[in-house]
């Protein structure tokens, strides 16, 4: 083991290649960074969602326009991404709240809850996606 440590190149600098291919995030790290990414995504997308809410409540003709618009494949895909963002953010947030009440701090539990959050986010996306279409 000391030999392996000695063979590692030091210092290690952070660059894009290192971030993308060399540093492997633990599962809890993925939950966390996806919580951020999904949050930032929803901040931007709120403009679009409000636009659709506005139009859908304006008149029957505009409601039908929004419905038709939501039927377009690229729009469906974009909405699906946002549904995932909401569901992941929701599940990861609950996990963070539990961690703050000092539950699930040991490594196996933390790993398990990370997997649950990642899977639940995707499963709920599939569920709501299927309901919408």
């Amino acid at each position: 083991m000391p030999q392996a440590a000695a063979n590692k190149k030091r210092p290690k600098y952070l660059n894009l290649t290192a971030l993308l291919f060399e540093i492997r995030l633990p599962l809890a790290g993925w939950v966390s960074i996806l919580h951020r990414i999904s949050g930032a995504l929803m901040f931007v997308a709120t403009l679009w969602l409000l636009f659709m809410l506005d139009r859908s409540l304006a008149s029957e003709r505009e409601f039908e326009f929004v419905r038709h618009y939501l039927g377009l494949v690229p729009v469906k895909l974009a909405l699906l991404v946002l549904i995932w963002a909401y569901c992941h953010h929701f599940c990861a947030g609950i996990r963070f709240l539990l961690l703050e009440t000092q539950r699930g701090w040991d490594k196996p539990t933390a790993r398990l809850t990370s997997i649950i959050v990642l899977v639940a986010g995707l499963a709920l996306t599939v569920l709501f996606g299927a309901k919408l279409w």
């Binding site: 901040f43 709120t46 403009l47 409000l50 809410l53 506005d54 409540l57």
Partner: peptide, 16 residues
């Protein structure tokens, strides 16, 4: 920019 955007979102929501 973020504060103004968020305030704008909120105002728009009330309007809707």
């Amino acid at each position: 920019f973020v504060v103004l955007t968020v305030a704008g979102y909120l105002g728009w929501t009330v309007q809707i």
